[in-house]
């Protein structure tokens, strides 16, 4: 299950998470984001217990997108101990995404 990340729960769910967190910045109008959606869902199942997977809707959470300088979606950021450790822009296959995130 992916966690819906908002400005309100970002600190608790991402910054204070003991597990690394994959955050997918997306929007419903973005075709590549919709194609990435099922992959992100699969990752949340594959990596259960090892990595948390969250989603940020940039339409609703513009502040978070701005804070992490997300200017193109889909953008996926891997947070480790509250800090961005890797960032991937664009639609990739699952195995390529994992590789680029260093997972």
């Amino acid at each position: 299950m992916e966690v819906k990340i908002t400005n309100d729960n970002f600190k608790k769910e991402v910054l204070e998470s003991e597990l690394p967190v994959i955050v997918d910045f997306w929007a419903a109008w973005c075709r590549p984001c919709m194609m990435l959606g099922p992959i992100i869902k699969e990752l949340s199942e594959d990596l259960e217990g090892k990595v948390k997977v969250g989603k940020v809707n940039v339409d609703e959470e513009g502040y978070l997108a701005q804070q992490f300088r997300v200017f193109s979606i889909p953008t996926v950021i891997l947070f480790k101990e509250g800090k961005p450790a890797a960032q991937v822009v664009g639609l990739l296959r699952k195995e390529d995404l994992l590789k680029r995130l260093g997972l």
Binding site: A27, C30, R31, P32, F71, S72, I73
Partner: peptide, 16 residues
Amino acid sequence: VGHGISYCVICDGFFY
């Protein structure tokens, strides 16, 4: 590229 330069308005226009 990806930091203000984009090849796709429907992908990235929203941010601007």
